[in-house]
Amino acid sequence: MNLRTIGRTPVRVGELGFGAAPLGNLYSAVDDATAGATIEAAWAAGVRHFDTAPHYGLGLSERRLGRALAGRPRDRFTLSTKVGRLLVTNPHPTGSDLAAGGFDVPDTSVRRPDYSRDGVLRSLEASRARLGVDRIDIVYVHDPDEHMDTAVDQAVPALVELREQGVVGAVGVGMNSVPPLLRFVAETDVDVVMVAGRWTLADRSALPLLAACADRGVSAVAAAPFNSGLLSSPSPADGAYFDYRPAPADLLARARALAGVCRRHGTVLPHAAIRFPLRHPVVASVVAGFRTPEEVRSAARWAARDLPSRAWEELEAVVTGEAPEPAAKPSAEPADEQAAEPADEQAGENTAS
C-alpha cells in the first residue's frame, strides 16, 4: 500500500488507515476472535496504519490492538492514539457504557476530560501500557471543542515536547468541526489534523482547512469517509444516515446519482468514497472503522485502485449540478464484488465522539 509522509516528520502512513473504534464494541459487541481476525485481515491486506483512542470501549480498543500487533515488528506499522479523556474509576457503575459513551462494555471506568499538560502525560502513559509499546507514532488531541484554550496552551505544547524527545513521532488534533482545527493549524506546531466527515464525496466543507494545511506544511487525515452511512452502500436506501441522522432528501438523491456514476464505470459508491479524500495532496490517509474481516478486505481493495479520470469528472458534475455527456461506454475496470457493509460507517466515531 502506498505510503505518505506526515507533515515535516519522518512518520509515514498508508493511504488506508484502520479505525479501531468498532473493536471497542461501538454500539454493539464484537467478540475477541472476530476482533483479532479483523486486524489479521487488515495486516494480510497490506494495512499498516492503525488508529485508536482510550475513549473507544474504555480502553478495550487499545488493549485489543496492542495484543494483535504484539508479534509484529514495531517499525513495520504506524500507530496513533489520542489524549484528552482520562479513564478513571467509575464510582457509580450501571453495568454498561452504552448510554454514556456508546460502547457495549462494562462501565467500570468513566471518561474525565483533561487537556492539561499533566493530563496529557498521564493519558499517554496509560495508552502506552494498554498498547504494550514504548512510543506512539501519532498522538492526536481528541475533540477539544469545549477546552480549546487549554488544548492550545497546554495539550499541544506537551505533545511537542514529547515529539522532541522521540516519545511521539507526530503531533495532531482530531475533530469533526473545521473552524477549531483552523485555529490549531494557525496557532500551534501540529503536524497533522484528523478531520472526520468534512472531506468526503458528500461534504467538502474542509476545503479551507486543507488550504491552510498546505500553507503551513501540515498533513490531513480524512476520517468518516462514508458520512456515517450515506456513502457506505452501492445503492443508498431510504433512511440512510448522514452525520448520524437520516439523510435529507436532496443528499440522498445526490448519493444515488453518485452511485449511478460508479455503476457505469464498473465499481461501487464506497470505492469512490474511500478514494475521494486522497485526491487532495494534503491528505495523507483515509481512516475508516472496521469490525469484520470482509469489511477491511473490501476497503483495502478500493483504496489500492483509483477510479478512471472520466468517472471523477462525472462524479464532480453530480456534485456541482453540471451533468456532462455520458461516457460512450462503461469503464473496462471490473466492479468490486463485495460492497461495504453498514458497519463501515463507524469511521466517523474515530474522532467525533
Rank of each mutant, 00 (worst) to 15 (best):
P157T: 06
S219Y: 11
P73A: 15
K329N: 08
A240E: 03
E187P: 11
E161Q: 10
V193E: 00
L210Y: 12
R122G: 00
A44P: 09
P246Q: 03
P208M: 14
L258R: 04
A323D: 04
G24W: 04
L23Q: 06
A41V: 08
H265T: 00
L181A: 06
A68P: 04
D344N: 15
R117W: 11
R12D: 02
C213L: 11
T188R: 11
G239E: 06
G266I: 09
V296A: 04
T150S: 14
D215K: 14
V171K: 00
A247D: 04
H49Y: 15
A253M: 07
G19T: 02
R12M: 10
A327I: 12
S219A: 15
G102K: 00
P270G: 02
F18A: 04
A335D: 09
A20R: 03
H280V: 11
A340D: 11
G174S: 11
G174T: 06
S61T: 05
V160Q: 07
A100C: 05
G66M: 10
F242T: 03
S228H: 13
D118S: 15
V167Y: 05
A214P: 00
I39V: 15
R122Q: 06
M1S: 08
A352S: 15
D134I: 05
A35R: 00
F276P: 00
Y140R: 06
L131T: 05
R216N: 12
A317H: 07
F50N: 01
P234V: 09
L124W: 02
F77R: 03
V268E: 01
P342H: 13
D107P: 08
R204Y: 13
A339I: 10
A214L: 13
E333N: 11
E316M: 11
D104G: 05
D134P: 04
P326Y: 11
A196R: 09
S219R: 12
P246C: 01
S309H: 14
E322S: 14
E40H: 15
L258K: 05
G321W: 13
Q346R: 14
R111A: 14
P93D: 00
